[in-house]
């Protein structure tokens, strides 16, 4: 097992490959691995070992971040099941979802125009709620019903919302400056 050859992040942390994940256990195993592979543990070792530790620690961070964030975890699970979410070229969305998007965007623009941090905070909170509800349906689709193409549709919608979240965050940052 070299860092490059480790294809499955769930195997790395010895966790079952499901969307609903014991995050405490993930946290503990991640720390246990980092305690062994972090470059700080190789400061007095040979250059070869230093390089290996760096590669392993990088892999552990990548794997941990992928499994920790629900949307990335869903994408990763779908990839294991051979389903490409095609977020770059598949923009087909239900019309009502697109309408909602337009409304969100208009609200964001209004909040920016008003320079209102409170409005932005409110928007961010509502967005989180919306995303949580979509993540709930994702759990059912992936772990219970195993309807992967339908799950990929939800992932695409969540990606839209996540982008909106980043834009809200950017607006907050710029307003604070």
């Amino acid at each position: 097992m070299t860092p490059e050859a480790t294809r499955n992040y769930f195997e790395l942390f010895q966790l079952p490959p499901s969307f609903q994940l014991d995050l405490d256990r993930l946290d503990r195993r991640y720390r246990e691995i980092q305690a062994r592979v972090h470059p700080d543990k190789a400061a007095h070792l040979s250059d070869t070992e230093k390089r290996l530790f760096l590669q392993w620690a990088t892999l552990a961070n990548e794997a941990y971040n992928t499994l920790k964030r629900p949307l990335d975890r869903a994408r990763y699970l779908l990839r294991i099941h051979g389903v490409d979410t095609r977020e770059e070229d598949n923009t087909a969305m239900p019309p009502e979802f697109l309408l909602e998007q337009i409304e969100w965007r208009e609200e964001l623009q209004a909040a920016v125009a008003l320079k209102s941090l409170t409005a932005l905070d409110g928007l961010a909170a509502r967005l989180r709620k919306e995303m949580n509800s979509l993540l709930g349906s994702l759990a059912t689709l992936l772990d219970v019903e195993r309807r992967h193409p339908a799950a990929a549709d939800v992932v695409r919608q969540l990606a839209f919302l996540e982008k909106l979240g980043r834009d809200i965050d950017q607006a907050q940052t710029e307003l604070e400056e």
Binding site: M1, T2, F13, I33, R36, V37, T48, L52, F53
Partner: peptide, 19 residues
């Protein structure tokens, strides 16, 4: 190099087994 790589695998397995 190969020895170092085996040692890493060994160490990680041991860590998770302990966990």
């Amino acid at each position: 190099t190969e020895f170092a790589s085996r040692r890493m695998n060994h160490s990680i397995r041991k860590a998770l087994a302990g966990q």
